[in-house]
Write a protein that binds this DNA or RNA. Sequence first.
DNA 1: AAGGCGTGGTG
DNA 2: TCACCAAGCCT
Length: 355
Amino acid sequence: MGGFYNDILEWYDRHRRVLPWRAEAGKKPDSYHVWLSEIMLQQTVVAAVIPYFQKFVDKWPTIHDLADADPDALMAAWAGLGYYARARNLHKAAKMISDTYSGIFPDTEQALKKLPGIGDYTSAAIIAIAHDKPAVVIDGNVERVMSRFFVIESQMPAAKAEIRRYAVQIYDPAHNRRPGDLAQAIMDLGAGICTPQSPSCGNCPVQSRCRIILEAASPEEYPRKAIKKTKKQRRGYIYHIETEAGEVLLEKRAEKGLLGGMTGFPTSEWVTGSSYPDHPGWLEGLSPAPIKNVLIKHVFTHFELSMKACRLRVADKDSIRNLPATYIWRSKSAVIDRKNDFPTIFRKFVPFINS
DNA sequence: AAGGCGTGGTG
DNA sequence: TCACCAAGCCT
């Protein structure tokens, strides 16, 4: 393992990327920055995270500022980044760190994993990167690098146990003198060289030791994965409802579940299959009219959604009886001005509320 | 423990 | 253009 360790760190020192949350070489990073970036980086590429990270640090420079943040402002700032449970958990964890830890991040994996949104990977990453202590940091990049370097034939996710056994050797504290750099080096290698498709093996610092190269196998076929299921289709309606005074109806979604805690345009239920659902009960007796040729399509991780757009003009707010308290009115100008407070699915509809 | 959970970078 | 899938966590 010594050869791998030295080669990859030598490569890292030459190719180290400058990132907003990364300290200068040899300096200790801000734990708050490390944690915030790691949460944002969960299932999300670096390029997408950078502007959000900058915005959060500008708005909330310390963990205490984030703990004191207005929840709706925090969710609005996260809008567009996806996986909104991360934002809800971020705020909960910030309060816990600010209050019970006085703003000092715990330095054991066990304590970190008690914080919402921090699991096996993120706790190890914080130990290694923020505290520069040895930890077995395994993310998708590390899994890919290990599965190729050691030619692991078992299929994911079952292969995780075997991958971990190799990773434990790689991260062995007996030789790991630069825990933070080593973890980031392997992840950077996975993100930039040992990529999922068409990896640049010719530029790899450990190509001469990599078993998949030695065996002339196909790296892009590793890690072995199960065949993916096709996404199901769901259908529904999205509504532009506006008063004569120019107020637009919005819906604050439930805290749990899809788009939890986010505000968007009202929708019907979304039903699986090729048929469309009924309009929601609070629209009883009012007949929203189809907006010709406007279909909002959106792809989620586990289904594809098509929503037919409908419009309803009402005299005033009282025109809709039995409207649940989770629905709110906002001026059309504010809706357009604050477009980016919406998740992407609802941003797509904003251009259509002007006619 | 398998499935829910978003979005945009990438080739 | 479009399929793939990412620095995972939670239940």
